[in-house]
Amino acid sequence: MELILSAGIGALAASGVYLLLRPRTYQVIIGLALLSYAVNLFIFSMGRLRVNAPPVLEPGGAGDLLRYTDPVPQALVLTAIVIGFAMTALFLVVLLASRGFTGTDHVDGREPPRGD
């Protein structure tokens, strides 16, 4: 399990980073989204992988880490997902505004001398 998930995180991160370095703004947005999947999974995996562990307490009881999943990384990732969405939206709109303003979708706001 650990091997598979870390390979997946690696692939997501590598695709994301590669796209971050590309010249077109749309590529950068997709790259950021991929990278945020990778980072969310990475943070989540810091609580170790648990299959079939109860995430919700018995009413009236107190939980411990041996029986339940680790809630802290989950709480962190939950907010990160929402903020990630907000960031994607912001970047998208900045991209659109920049495209309308400069007439190009190159990340520098102008086309390079010879096409890439």
């Binding site: 995180i9 997501l12 590598a14 999974l41 995996s45």
Partner: peptide, 16 residues
């Protein structure tokens, strides 16, 4: 990018 992804994967695997 491969180095970055590989690094992340390695750290994740080690911790997990």
């Amino acid at each position: 990018a491969t180095m970055a992804g590989g690094g992340v994967a390695l750290v994740a695997y080690t911790v997990m």
